[in-house]
């Protein structure tokens, strides 16, 4: 395999992806999906199992906004066999790295 190109300043790395859960709706998870750069963010919605599959496929670490935490955990308890994405680090930090 060829060497990956040296990272250019300011060019987003499309292999870096993040997910931030913003809410839930019934069995659906509402979340922001980011590729490479916070500017490149899109709001998405998926059923809970599809959401977990999506995070795994994209190797995207997930954080959960505090306001969505309780509802999100309820969804998770209902499908307890699937591992919960990483919680938001304690405190007010929303940094994903």
């Amino acid at each position: 395999m060829a060497e990956p190109p040296a990272e250019q300043p300011g060019v987003p790395d499309i292999n870096k992806r993040w997910v931030r859960v913003t809410g839930t709706h019934g069995d659906f998870v509402l979340f922001d999906f980011t590729i490479g750069d916070p500017d490149l963010t899109v709001e998405l919605i998926l059923p809970f199992p599809a959401f977990l599959e999506f995070c795994a496929t994209n190797h995207a670490p997930a954080t959960v906004e505090p306001a969505a935490q309780a509802a999100y955990e309820r969804l998770h308890r209902r499908s307890w066999t699937i591992p919960l994405p990483q919680r938001r680090p304690g405190g007010a930090s929303d940094r994903l790295l």
Binding site: D39, T41, G91, D94
Partner: peptide, 10 residues
């Protein structure tokens, strides 16, 4: 700047 999210403050 504290813990301003990169999403909220580019």
């Amino acid at each position: 700047l504290g813990d301003a999210s990169p999403f909220a403050l580019m």
